[in-house]
Structure formats: structure tokens, C-alpha cells
Design a protein around this nucleic acid. Structure first.
Lengths: 213, 213, 213, 213
DNA sequence: AATGAATGAGTTTTCATTCAT
DNA sequence: CATGAATGAAAACTCATTCAT
């Protein structure tokens, strides 16, 4: 009994966040009206105000929450990568594919689109969230690559640079192909970007001369 | 003098387009009100409607025009690249820097931001313009790289892939750093991306083992 | 007190309808701006949109409501007419005067003017409402006249025709005189139309040769 | 050569009037925009201002002109009626049918609709034109009926009343059926109204007891 | 805490009218 | 005189936000 009230409240809180992420990502901040969010969430409009203060507060909460989720998934993916793999190429391809999927698939796409589209409207919020997430991701990735270098699987002097370039090689093309999150990505484009990206990465950073393109 | 009637109209047309590019890029489509565009352009609001029909028509005209401009600049830059350079690394760095500048600097940044932010609102328009431009750019770049391969400066089997990866290596980081066009790019980031990007590109595609990273 | 919430809403609904009938009838649909309706009704403009969707929806509601009112009054008037009167002429004059009053006086005039002026703008709505009402009125009137014929007070073979012609005789002149609802009717014109209309009606349909004109 | 300028001007004047009658009648004053009138007339918008001053002036000119035309046609019809006909019923039916046609057919309908719909907007103009026309028509008709009484074809003491009632009997139903000019009239309705209207008129005003209805 | 209802402020669009040629 | 272009004023409609229950 006692927790029911709390549970309900938490449920509504979460329902509003989910609905808002969906609607904001599809229509952008300015074109989102809270009536629609309220309807999708199944609550009355004033309830949104009770929970989040105003429209900007709701948006901030959505961005923070969804970014944390995405970041956690990315960290998991990187952590799951072996530092001493049998097949380096396969290991990197798996890693890259997972990263691209975190950033472009499902909620990841919505999260990214939000950050991207509303960067000019909420500069501090978005800068903080995005740069923070990106920095953490690149740090983790650089760490992993440094370990691979330590174990002799890679030959690199600047793990940060290698991390940035690996990300660029495998994620740039899918990003553009998705219309920067506006459309679903073509899986074939992801495949090609991952395969060719890792290939070039290895050509540049593998200890032995890798096969040419 | 004699053509003043025509001149005046053309002037206003151009003034509206310039003002609209500025305001749209800064505030996004939904947050732009035509009162502000009219004021910046120095015309009355109905004049905008006379020239462009409605807000969406104005936006479309802005995107088309500014994209054509950007595309022309990019084509010039690529065309100006030597296919038999003394110093390949320097030549590629110059090319890359110019490309990044076309895409991220000044009007280029505004153009890109428009396309990127409003992709979901005007899918056909943006797809047509952006994909068209990107494809043309990559074709031109691939052609240039193929020539460099033919003259023995590069070793590559798939010029299209090389073009996409060169673009990714040098432009991804500045793009992110600019908040996808929301902030001015840090020139140091551009420098680093260009230098390191070309370096890795050469490591992967130069005939002789390129210098390590 | 307990039902204040409901009451308030109903009050505003009614207030808007009343105000709108007034303003629409005076100025016509196109010249009516909802700011004025809102002011007359004592509500904010969006409240009108909350209740009626848009301007056309408000108009439709006004027409439906006011027509139902008018129709009910007309039905009452006809029902109140005796089928076995002592003085047939007096009875018919009373009936006719009441009918004309229903159609031309006060809210009746506004209702009629609306239907008449906006017939081209809302063809289905107006056709439905007006033809329906007119048909029902003529049916009721024809029924009453048929009863008067059955009791020997009138001599007629086609009660529908008699009803139409009675209406024409007593209402045409006041209608024109009011500028089709634009001005208040001159009571003297109503008097004359009723007296002379009933007189001619009786000359044509009374069993015994009625007094000459 | 010399008259060409004048001729052209007259042509344009007339073309504007014709176009304006058409558009005003279809859409009403408030919903008519002069761009459309200009396009239909094949002239530039300022030309309308040169000829008629402003929108209201154009409307007044249209009403005056078209009313004069309609009035002239009505006068012709009444004048063409014999005062000593072989078949009185047939003669009256012909007269009535022609009158209804003048008022409801083609330009007559447009003229009437204008007067009716815009009565509240231009009270003096419309009152003057309509009442004037109606009075003249009723005077002419009353004169004709008085002559028929003088020749023993009718038995009436008040020719004005007889004229008003004849008009009411034959024109009321078609008027309503046309939606007061908004739709084309059903010819069957005209036929019935004329036949039955004249029948009742004769029942009331013929010297010998006319056949009952 | 949650909600139905109400509202103030703002935006797109239209159109009668006027310049300048 | 006729016209292409420009404009000031207004009106429909929307939406974030707040009351009152």
C-alpha cells in the first residue's frame, strides 16, 4: 500500500521521460508540444510540470538520462573487449560494430539526434553531456588500445589519436548515412564502414605491414 | 540605372536569402520567425512571401542556394590539387585543410548545420541536396586519388573507399568539436585532425611503409 | 457549489455560443474575428478553440444550436393552435404572427441571417439545418391545416401546398423588409403582411366565399 | 487609332465589372480578394484602383450596374404582358415564370445574392438599390394588375397588395429552394410554385369563384 | 500528487492599398 | 493609364504555463 503511491509516481516519471525522448528526438525541441508528450506518456500535462518544472527542465532530464544510459552501454562494450585476442581483426570489428550500434541504433540514435540538433539551444547542457561522454568513451577506448599495444598487438605511440581515428573510420560513414540520426542506418553501410575502417586502422597501426586496401 | 526595377528586386531576393541563412542556421527552422528575417534583410515581411511563397519555401531556397555555393567551392578546391606533387603529404594536407574549411567555416558551417538539423523536417529536400553534394565531392576526391595512384604516389585498389576514409579521418573530429556546427571550430583541432589524419592515411595507402604514427 | 467545475465550463460554453451568434449575425462569418467573440463572451480566445476546435466549428455549433432553438419555438407555436377555433381568421392571424416573430424577431432574425448569408460557405451544414427545419415546420403546419380541413374550417386538397403558400403570404414581405435579416422588421409591415396574407389565404381556402380583398 | 485607347479602357472597365460580379457573388465581399478579380478580368490590380478607387467602390459599381440590368429585364417582362388576355391564367403564369427567371437565373441570381448577403455591410447602398428596384417592380406589376381589374379580368381593391402577394406566392418557394441564390434552382420547384401560386392568386382575386385547390 | 480547464503571448499568413517605373 | 513590386495592418491558430479542484 505504502509503496504504491511511490511506485506509481516513479512509473509516471519514467513514462514521461520515455515519451519525451521519443517525441523530442522525432520532432525536435521547438516542434514538440507537451500535449503530445503527455498523451504518449498517459499523464495529464500539469503532471509533467510537477515532475520537471518546465519544458526545458524536461528536456534536460531527458538528455541527461538517455546519455547516461548510452554511455553505460558504450563502457560495457569496451570493457568486454579482450586485450589479448586470438584474432585481432575480428576482435576490433566486433568492438567497432558494437560501438556503432550503441551510437546509432534505437535509443542511441534518438539520444545522439537530440544532442546534435539542440546543441545551439542548450549549449552548456549539450556540451557538458556530449563532450563528457565522448571524452570518457575515447579514454576507455584509448586505454584498451594502449593495452593492445603493450601486448604487442598494435604499434602506436599515441593511443588517444588511435582511438579518435578508429572512431572516425568506423562511425563517420554510418553517421552521414543515417542523416545524422534522422533515418535508420543501412546495415550494409555499417558493415562496410566497420570492415574497411578496421582494415585501414590495422594497415596503419598493426606491427607488421598489413595487407593493402 | 535603367535596370533599377530589376536590380532592386534581385537585391531584395539576395538580401532575404542571406539573412535567412544566417537566422535559420543560428536558431533552427522552428525557432526562426520571419519577422526577424525580414528585419535582418531590411524588407517587409510580405516581401518574403512574395518571393518565396512561405516559410518552408524560403528554407528550401536557402538550402539549395547555399549548398550549391558550398559545393562549387569544394569542387574548386579538389580541382586545384596537383596529381603529381613534389611533396604528397603537404599536398594532401592542403587539400584536407581546404575541405574542412569549406565544410566548417563561415557560411559552410551554417549550410551544414541547416542540413543536419532539419534533416528530419524536410527529408527529401535535405537528402537530395546533401547526398548529392556528398556523392559529388567523394567522386571528385576519388578521381583525384585514383590519379595519384596512377602516378604511383598512392597504392590503393578502391579509390572510393580511400576518399571516404580520408574525409572521415580529417573531418570527423572537427565536426564533433564544433558541436556539429553549433560553435566555431577550434583551429588547433583542425590542425591536429588534418596532420594526423593525413599521416594515418599515408601510413595505410602510401606505397612505401609510411612513418609510424 | 459542488458542481462548480462543471458549471463553469458549461457557462463558458453557453456564453461563447451566445456571443458568437450575436457577432456572426451582425458581421457575417468572414468579418467576424474571434477576438471580438472572446471579448463579448468574456473568455480568452484559446478557450473558444478548446471548446469548438476552430472558427468553422464554432460557426457550425452556433447554427445547430440556434436552429434547434428556433425550431422548438416554431413547433410550440404550431402546436398551440386550436383545430376547432371559434374565430378561424383570428386564430390563423395569431399563428402567422407568431411564426413570423419566431423567424424574424430577436435571435430568430440572427439565426435566419446566418443560414441565409453563409449558405454558400457551408453548403452541407446549412442545407441540412435549414431544409430540415423548414420541412419540419411545413409538415407541422400542413398537419394543422389538414385538421382544420377535416373539421370543416378549410377547404383544401393539398395541405402541403396550403402550408407553403400561407408561409409565403405572411412571411415574404417581412423578410424582404428586414433586408433579409439585416435590419429590424417594421412591425407595421408584419401587421399588414399577416392581416392581408391570412385574408387572401382564406379567400382561397375558406369553404364559403370569403370577403373580397 | 484615336478611339483605340478609349475602347481599351472601356473594355477593361467592363471586364473588371463582369469579373467582380462573378467573384463577389460566389465568395462574398469579405472573401473576395482583388488579386483574383484582377486575374479573372485580365488586368493588373492597380488598374482596378485606377477605375474604381477602392474595393468598396468596385462593389458599389458592381451592385449598381448589375441591378440596373436586372431591373430593366424585369420591366420588359412586365411590359410585355397583355392587359386583355384570352387566357388569363396562362398569361399570369408566363409573367410569373419570367419574373422568377429574372430574379433567380444566371446574373439575376448573382445580383440578388450580392444584395442579400451584403445588406448589413453596405446598408444605404443596398437599401437604395434593392428597395428602389423592388418598389419599381411592384409598382409596374400593380399597374398591370389594376389594368386587368379595369378590364374585368380580376376583382381587386388594392392592386399593390395583389402585386405583393402574387410575388410572394410565386417567388418565395424558389427563393428558399435556391438557398437564397447559393445553388441553382430546381426547375420543377419553379414550375410548381408558378402553377400553384397563380392558381391560389386566381382563387382569391378572380371575379368568379375559381376552382378550389 | 494529479487533473480538466483557462489563458497570455506569439507566429504564420493574407490582403487592401500604395510606390516607382 | 497600366503595371510589378513592396508594405502595414490584421486575423486565425498554437502552446507553454497556471488555476482551481
Amino acid at each position: 500500500m505504502v509503496v504504491t503511491g511511490t511506485t506509481r509516481r516513479v512509473d509516471k516519471h519514467r513514462a514521461i521521460l520515455d515519451a519525451a525522448l521519443d517525441v523530442f528526438a522525432r520532432q525536435g525541441y521547438a516542434d514538440t508540444n507537451l500535449d503530445e508528450v503527455a498523451e504518449v506518456a498517459g499523464v495529464a500535462k500539469p503532471t509533467i510540470y510537477n515532475h520537471f518544472g518546465d519544458k526545458a527542465g524536461l528536456f534536460a532530464a531527458v538528455v541527461e538520462t538517455s546519455s547516461q544510459d548510452a554511455n553505460a552501454r558504450v563502457a560495457d562494450v569496451i570493457a568486454a573487449t579482450s586485450t589479448n585476442p586470438e584474432d585481432l581483426r575480428a576482435e576490433l570489428e566486433t568492438l567497432a560494430r558494437s560501438l556503432v550500434h550503441c551510437l546509432q541504433g534505437g535509443a542511441g540514435s534518438a539520444t545522439m539526434r537530440l544532442q546534435l540538433v539542440e546543441g545551439a539551444r542548450f549549449p552548456e547542457l549539450i556540451s557538458r553531456v556530449r563532450d563528457g561522454n565522448r571524452d570518457r568513451t575515447l579514454d576507455l577506448l584509448a586505454g584498451k588500445l594502449a593495452q593492445l599495444a603493450a601486448t604487442g598487438h598494435l604499434r602506436l605511440r599515441d593511443p588517444g589519436r588511435a582511438a579518435r581515428q578508429l572512431m572516425a573510420l568506423v562511425s563517420d560513414e554510418p553517421l552521414v548515412n543515417s542523416g545524422f540520426g534522422a533515418r535508420p542506418v543501412d546495415p550494409a553501410v555499417v558493415d562496410r564502414a566497420v570492415t574497411e575502417g578496421v582494415d585501414t586502422f590495422l594497415a596503419a597501426f598493426a606491427p607488421e605491414p598489413a595487407p593493402e586496401s
